[in-house]
Amino acid sequence: MKDLLIIIPAFNEEKNIGSVISELKERAGDASLLVVDDGSSDGTGEILKTMGVKTVRHRVNLGLAEAVRTGMKYALRHDLKYAMQFDADGQHDAAAVERLYKQAVKGEYNIVIGSRYAEKKAPLSLRTIGGTMISLCICMVSGEKIKDPTSGMRLYDRRVMECFAASSHYSPEPDTLSYLISRGIKVTEVQVSMNERMSGRSYLDITESLRYMFRMCSSILLLQWIRR
C-alpha cells in the first residue's frame, strides 16, 4: 500500500487521536499517514509531535472539507495514487483500510466507500433515515444506488483528487459524490464496521443533522445541474 495516503483530519481530538494513529500504524501496513491538524486548540498538536507522525497544520480551523483537500494536495505533490479519508475520532476500523485499497487497485472504481450498509441492512433510526433520504436523492439524479452516502471513510484515486485540488466546489460530502457519479466517476462500496465515538461528542446533533440533510438534498437535487 505504498501508493496510499491515509488522511486523518483532526480538530481538537486529543482524547482519540493517539489510539487512532497507533492502531493505523499497526494495522494499515505500509500506507503513509498524514494528520491534518485543522487548527486544534487543545493538546492534539503535542500528541502528534510525540507520536512522530507526519502532520500538516492549518493555523485556523477551516473545517473538514478543507482539511481533506489539503491532504489530497499533499498526496498529489508526493505522487501518491490513492488517498483515503479516515476519521480521527476512533469511529473507523483500521483493519478496513486494506480491504478498501484492494478494491481500489483493481482499477475499476475511482471512489471506494467504506460502507456500514453495503451488505448489512440499515437499522431504523433518525440518522439512517437521513442517510436514506440522501441515497434516494442521489439515485434520482445519477441512477446509482449508494447505500451509505454519509460514511466518512472513502478512498479516492488521482482523478478525483485532482478535481478536489482544483476547485472548492468539491467537498467530501454526498452532494459531490452524486455530482461525480453523474460525471462518469465510478463508485463502489465495501462493507466495514464502525464503532461509536470513543470520546467526545459528534458534531452532528439533531438540528444539525436536519440542517445537514436539507443542505445535502437540496444541493443534490437543485445545484447538480448548474455546478461545475
Binding site: 478543507e66 489539503t70 494536495k73
Partner: peptide
Amino acid sequence: ENRFNKLVGDEALKAE
C-alpha cells in the same frame, strides 16, 4: 473565503 482557505492550506503544506 475561497482565497482564505487556499492560503491557509498552502501555507500548511509549505511549512511541512
